[in-house]
C-alpha cells in the first residue's frame, strides 16, 4: 500500500435542498489508479465535484484530507494549488480569455511550475503536439467554439501541464470518437508515466482503462459507495451490470 494521498471519511453532501452523497469513505494512495463506477445518477460526478470543493454542494458531515491537510472547508483554488485536478465532463467556455493567457496564469500560480515565457511556450507546444492539438487553438478563446473532443483534449493539456498529485477524470471519455478517445487515453497514460500522479476515473467506458493498471474499483449506487474490489470487478460489472448492487442496497435500506 502506497502513501495515503486522499482520505474521504464519513462524507455526506448535497445541494441546499437535496442530500446526494451518504457517508462516503474512500482512500486513494499516491500514484494509484482508482475507478469509480455506477449507474447514471448515482452521484459519481457529485463526489468528484465535492472533492474539488465545488460551492454548489454543501458538505453536511465528514472530512476530506489530502496530503495530510484537511481541505474540507477550503475553496477550490486552494485545493487545486494543493494538487487536486478535476477534469470536467462539460468544460466551461470562457469568452474573452485566450487559451495561452489562461494556461500561463494557472502555471504562474504554482511556484513549482513558474518558468520563463520561452520555456513555457516550449512546454505547451510539446504537450499540444503530444495530444494532436493544433497550435492555432492556443490563441483561441478558452473552450469557445471547441467541439466536445477538442475540449477534452484541452483538459488533458492542462492535466499534463499542471502535473497534479491527484487527477479526478469525470467521464473524460464521454462523447469522444475512436480517434479522440485514443488521444485522450494517451494523455492519461502520459500523466501516469510522467507525473506518477494518482487517478480517480469516473467512467462507463472500459476502453479508456485498457492502457492503465487499475488498483481499486469502487461502485456507487444512490449516493453510497456499496462495493469496492480489484480491477477484476470492472469485468464483472461489464458482464452483469449494477443490478445486484442496487438490489443489495435496497434490501439493506429496507432492513
Amino acid at each position: 500500500m502506497s502513501d495515503q494521498l486522499l482520505s474521504v471519511s464519513g462524507l455526506s453532501a448535497g445541494t441546499e435542498d437535496k442530500p446526494i452523497l451518504h457517508d462516503i469513505n474512500l482512500t486513494v494512495g499516491a500514484g494509484e489508479t482508482h475507478v469509480l463506477m455506477g449507474p447514471n445518477g448515482a452521484g459519481k460526478s457529485t463526489l468528484g465535484h465535492v472533492i474539488m470543493g465545488d460551492p454548489i454542494y454543501q458538505v453536511t458531515s465528514g472530512s476530506i484530507v489530502f496530503g495530510g491537510q484537511d481541505l474540507t472547508d477550503k475553496s477550490p483554488d486552494k485545493r487545486s494549488l494543493a494538487g487536486i485536478f478535476l477534469s470536467y465532463q462539460a468544460p466551461v467556455e470562457v469568452p474573452g480569455v485566450p487559451l495561452y493567457s489562461f494556461l500561463r496564469t494557472i502555471c504562474q500560480m504554482r511556484p513549482e511550475l513558474k518558468t520563463t515565457a520561452r520555456k513555457f511556450r516550449q512546454r505547451v507546444g510539446e504537450i499540444a503536439d503530444q495530444l494532436d492539438i493544433n497550435q492555432n487553438f492556443l490563441t483561441r478563446e478558452l473552450n469557445v467554439g471547441f467541439s466536445g473532443g477538442e475540449k477534452k483534449k484541452i483538459e488533458m493539456l492542462q492535466l499534463l501541464l499542471l502535473r497534479p498529485k491527484l487527477a479526478i477524470l469525470d467521464e473524460t471519455d464521454s462523447g469522444l470518437d475512436v480517434d479522440a478517445l485514443s488521444i485522450v487515453s494517451r494523455g492519461i497514460e502520459a500523466y501516469r508515466k510522467e507525473c506518477d500522479g494518482a487517478l480517480l476515473m469516473i467512467t462507463h467506458n472500459t476502453r479508456i482503462l485498457e492502457r492503465l493498471t487499475v488498483d481499486r474499483t469502487h461502485v456507487m449506487v444512490h449516493g453510497s459507495l456499496v462495493a469496492d474490489g480489484p480491477a477484476s470487478l470492472i469485468d464483472d460489472i461489464d458482464a452483469h451490470g449494477f443490478a445486484r448492487f442496487e438490489n443489495a442496497l435496497e434490501q439493506k435500506e429496507q432492513a
Partner: peptide
Amino acid sequence: QLGFLSSRGLSDDVAERLF
C-alpha cells in the same frame, strides 16, 4: 466560469486580473 477557473487554482481576484 468562476467555478471552473477556481478549480484550476485561480481565486476570484486572480480571475479578474486574468480577464
